[in-house]
């Protein structure tokens, strides 16, 4: 961070080259996330994408938003939102992940239950899910959209097509 300087008011002033370097890193990470998304990483597809997104966010927050040179309280504030959001995510996810197919007080189950048992369909048009009733053992499957174990007939990575 040698390109940094402070003005006479003690505020941090980033140099042009420094800002350009951050921009270059952000664009590089954008292409990186595009590249990793095109690869078949199995369960890790989404985590890797999110990790890169967090990396980009960190760059923006620290250097474009000057948190690196900010006060301690601003540093705390910039992560407070994440912490409280984790509360929201954690409890709702624990709930939907542990909802029994049949609750003691009735047959209500979460709406996607019937469809979750079908991962990637082997036929292009997905219809007639009625027979797939919720199976308890399927509920604890991770939320990856294409867990390799389920689909032996899956094609090799990269053979999908975005444009035909």
């Amino acid at each position: 961070m040698g390109h940094a300087a402070s003005d006479e008011h003690g505020l941090h002033v980033s140099s042009v080259e420094f800002n350009l370097r951050i921009l270059a890193s952000l664009i590089f990470l954008t292409f990186l996330t595009y590249a990793t998304a095109s690869m078949d990483l199995g369960y890790f597809d989404t985590p890797v994408a999110l990790l890169i997104a967090f990396g980009k966010t960190t760059l923006v927050i620290l250097y474009f938003m000057h948190v690196r040179w900010g006060s301690d309280y601003v540093k705390i504030l910039s992560v407070t939102g994440f912490v409280f959001l984790i509360f929201l995510f954690a409890f709702t996810l624990v709930d939907v992940g542990s909802r029994a197919p049949e609750q003691p007080w009735g047959k209500y189950t979460w709406p996607g239950a019937a469809h979750r048992t079908t991962m990637i369909p082997s036929v292009p048009v997905v219809t007639g899910h009625g027979e797939h009733d919720a199976h308890g053992d399927e509920h604890h499957a991770p939320s990856s959209t294409h867990s390799p174990g389920h689909h032996e007939d899956k094609e090799a990575p990269g053979s999908h097509a975005q444009g035909h």
Partner: peptide
Amino acid sequence: GFLVWGHHMFTSGQSVYTGVVF
């Protein structure tokens, strides 16, 4: 106070495990 909201939903169809934690 941010960690207890599920006690409004014990009978809503929320999972029992979540209910216990809440």
